[in-house]
Amino acid sequence: MNRLATRIGALELKNPVLTASGTFGYGLEYDDFFDVATLGGICTKGLSREPRAGNPPERICETPASMLNAIGLANVGVEAFCRDKLPVLRERGVTVVANIFASSTDDFVAIAERLGGEPGVHALELNVSCPNVSHGGIEFGKDPKLAAQVTAAVRRAAKLPLWVKMSPEAGDIVAVAKACEGAGADALTAINTIRGMTIDVDTERQRLANRTGGFSGPALRPIALRIVWDLVGAVSIPVIGIGGISTWRDAVEFLLAGASAVQVGTASFADPCAAKKVLDGIAAHCERQGTSVAELIGRARR
């Protein structure tokens, strides 16, 4: 029996460790460091209908135990992904979650239809929570009605398992979560980044050209964990925890809070093997404790 297996709706993952969108490229960039097919899955960089150049520099800066990014969803576009990246991932046996982004429901649907026809995509993750683009994105994720509308439209367009990525900036995140559940989401992923700012005292200007950027990394973890806890208590679909996970202990915190899987993000920049180390650490922990991932999930709630 596989102690590490976990179930996200109809999708069985061989282990609960995935990589977070935007921090793992299209997956193969990390192949020199470890075999990415050993992970539970990878979430791609946010894919849009057309390629996007992204925001002007500076796009990133470091903040205490964290960073800010305003990449602006630069990506190759869904066509190039299907043509150049997906075949290799498929051949390598990587579990691929396609993170998708659009500024209209029509575009969301078009991308979902395109990916729905491709073997090798195992789930869709709707990014309705990017804080770094001026149109769409987070607007969908802040409003329960809009979030439900996009979720329902994509639900109709593609048979793939559908995950919706939550924004911590929603006024009432539980309401958004329930709306997405009601509209047919198979799972929720939480959280995306939260907007932060930093000013260079010498130039007296914001460091990022976009002025604000998404806050991620270890400092985000307690906030992410609290939100995951709240969501697990409010919905009956699986929740996948994201935010500041660097070590296996961090990941187990999320499992204990009730997350069915986790995503490792910014930690992969600090250490390209971070996700693999998280996975190995969870395996060793289960071995030592004589337990399984399925048993760990939600144990702090009981």
Binding site: T23, K45, E58, R59, I60, N69, I71, A74, T266, S268
Partner: peptide, 14 residues
């Protein structure tokens, strides 16, 4: 430039 990854992943170095 500032860099977070160094190998084409973060897109922070344009």
């Amino acid at each position: 430039t500032p860099m977070a990854c160094g190998y084409g992943v973060c897109l922070g170095c344009p």
